[in-house]
Write a protein that binds this DNA or RNA. Structure first.
Lengths: 210, 210
DNA sequence: TCCGGCCTTAAACAGGCGTTTGAGATTCAA
DNA sequence: TTGAATCTCAAACGCCTGTTTAAGGCCGGA
């Protein structure tokens, strides 16, 4: 695959990622995408089939990019000290804060899907469960091996959302009244703070010792 | 004020709240709003000035409705046992889960604003800081009176987001793979679980005893 | 050189958007 | 009852949307 059209395809996917991240799927227009890719709107229908199919391509690439950064496998969760496993999990989830330019668009894509899921994403995740949920669930069981299924589900959802708000609303945190500076040292401090909080929360009230 | 036009005004605000909650400000159309209110699209321009002005009215009503449900004042936070204050704070924030029909639209309105803030809301909150942030910050200081400003800011933001995901993504929690049932008993259990988690997290690692 | 497939393009299509217009209905005070 | 103010409504305006169409450029093989 080194046809002349590959340049157009790749440019369209890149431009679409930026536009959909900024405005969401509905509000992102094929004309703006084409303009940023220096291509014609009709090229989207020609190469992908339509706006939805282009979006599917964008989501697939986003999933690949995010999961490639995982610093934790299912095997490691059971092998490692549970606090160390938790530390790696949090570090992975906070990576978008470090590699801001690279990941911010992907984070925003998922934020849009969070408030208004598209049929495109629903179809994609229906195929197989999200790896991040499986990892978080396994991590919770290291702390609460005897928890009921409902409590386990709640704790898993809770753990996933310990980092989400910081990543999703990073732009909000640098403004008033918070005024935080998002450099590497800050992300390290945040990671340490969250590790203490989450470890403390899971260990207290119902947790078993490691 | 019991002019004949008041019926139209009220019907438009009600319909607009539903439509904006479902689709967001941009995607919510004046034609759909007018149709649900059994009115003419031109009535929006006539009574409010335009789509933005109608939205401002919707947001104002939403703020009033949400803050009227507060179960905690600044004075009570310092007077009460800190765990009891935290319990009341969490109960307040989880109320949308209990009174689902009444509050779900407001929660969704703010969820849209979270991913893509409108100039309308920005102008509204610029006037004065959000009461919920002030309360959460005061609560955090009960646990960590000697924390640095940055840590205080992070902990405040963290506390606010302990309940947010459960309320915002309640529709997600009832589906696979979680399959939770959102009745009163469940919300009580969730409130108790979160109270233990948050109290444990804030008390561990840096917290002082009460 | 010429042909045929791949690619790009401007133009047009049907439909939705927020808002304005002007005429008609309705309401209320005098 | 009359006149003026208030309100409603269908129609039209200009602009934007995703997609289709048809014409032409481009390029490698015969």
């Amino acid at each position: 695959m080194s046809r002349p059209a590959d340049r157009t395809r790749q440019a369209l996917v890149t431009a679409a990622t930026a536009v959909f991240a900024e405005k969401g799927f509905e509000a992102g227009s094929v004309r703006e995408i084409a303009q940023r890719a220096k291509a014609n709107p009709a090229a989207i229908s020609y190469h992908f089939g339509g706006k939805e199919d282009l979006y599917r391509e964008v989501l697939r690439a986003a999933f690949r990019a995010f999961e490639a950064q995982a610093q934790l496998t299912e095997a490691e969760i059971d092998a490692l000290n549970r606090r160390e496993a938790l530390r790696r999990y949090l570090a992975w989830q906070l990576q978008p804060l470090v590699k801001r330019d690279q990941f911010s668009r992907i984070v925003r894509l998922f934020a849009w899907e969070n408030v208004s899921p598209t049929p495109v994403l629903r179809a994609l995740v229906a195929a197989e469960p999200l790896p991040v949920l499986a990892l978080a669930g396994q991590l919770v069981r290291r702390y609460r091996p005897r928890a009921e299924p409902e409590e386990l589900a709640l704790l898993t959802f809770w753990l996933v959302n310990q980092t989400g708000p910081f990543v999703r609303d990073a732009a909000f945190l640098v403004e008033e009244p918070f005024r935080l500076t998002l450099d590497q040292a800050f992300v390290d401090r945040l990671g340490g703070l969250l590790l203490d909080l989450v470890d403390g929360a899971l260990a207290a009230g119902g947790g078993v010792s490691d």
